[in-house]
Write a protein that binds this DNA or RNA. Structure first.
Lengths: 180, 180
DNA sequence: GAATACATGTAAAATGTTACATGATTTT
DNA sequence: AAAATCATGTAACATTTTACATGTATTC
């Protein structure tokens, strides 16, 4: 799957593994993320499959950059993938809920402290979606002149916003429930 | 992580790998799931670490069952884990959003068809949370006399409900946005 | 007669995380 | 003086998925 995230970005412009990590962190991290090391190994695999090609870009006073470019085969693979519909619901994993499910023997105060901490974290996250992420999308959209693309990016930002609002609401409900 | 899901269930009652899969499917699948094969291999690892013990239960006209029981060490490990607070936000992966993010070159109708299909799937899921899942929790709670535990289980069911409602709302917004 | 439920597992492949290794430049 | 940024990668480990393998009993 990470494969397609990388092809997707490279379909806009060439980039190094380092660049791709930065791009993901400010754009898709809301619904797709990866460690730097995994990005490097996946890029290598993509080059082996001839979906991308790379060349070294020498730099003074900085380590050399290995810059990747998508190939025609890569573009086709990407397009095939986007055109293929998903016919199932994605299943989630939420460590916090798992813990909560099995926490009946715990002191209620311990649970409540954890939920309150989560609320703080999610409130900070929500602000990020509403300010930084929104700004980043605007910047990209205007600088590259891609209003149409930005429309889709905005829908994914909106998901993050709605999700986090929902999460906070659930935390509020749950906290109230356990306090009473 | 699956480790703790299994210990959590075994802390209530002994069970086979098959039983545990059934239990997860009707209770935690909303926020934690696993394949049958992974459950078997994880149980084996847990027994090696002496967190569970197993014995064979012979059956007539059915394959024998290997039934697992949690040990004192297992109970301690589980309790330690539940008491340990999570200090970060869980990061999600949503294939659909990833695809959407990179779908600007696609015909809008292809995207819309996919989103409408997702809406159907999520509506069915929502009903499930509101009927079957709710009923299952009630049944467990009364049959085992654990109103306190059921309170927590109910909060995780509620999360599934709120999440799915949010998802449908986002789909509606996004569909409208792309239609216009 | 076919599909599902019951019941267990192994092996291989894919995916993802953590730790290690290096080293200059810039910011705090 | 310490921490963060720039920049790349490998190795080991852990987790998860998919495929394989087997066979009876019950339900549709």
């Amino acid at each position: 799957m990470l494969k397609y995230a990388l092809l997707g970005f490279l379909n806009y412009q060439t980039a190094s593994g380092y660049d791709l990590k930065q791009l993901m962190d400010v754009s898709t991290s809301n619904f797709w993320h990866a460690k730097q090391s995994q990005i490097y190994t996946t890029l290598k695999a993509l080059e082996k499959d001839a979906l991308v090609v790379s060349h070294i870009e020498p730099q003074e006073s900085r380590p050399n950059r290995r810059v990747y470019e998508i190939t025609t085969a890569g573009q086709e693979d990407l397009k095939n993938w986007t055109a293929q519909p998903i016919t199932e619901i994605e299943s989630r994993k939420e460590k916090l809920l798992l813990k909560l499910f099995f926490s009946a023997q715990l002191e209620p105060e311990i649970i409540l402290t954890e939920l309150r901490l989560q609320k703080n974290l999610h409130q900070a996250q929500l602000e990020k979606y509403q300010t930084i992420t929104k700004e980043v999308i605007k910047q990209f959209a205007s600088s590259l002149d891609m209003q149409e693309d930005a429309k889709l990016w905005e829908t994914t930002r909106r998901f993050g916003e709605l999700y986090t609002e929902m999460y906070i609401r659930w935390l509020d409900e749950t906290i109230e429930n356990l306090e009473g």
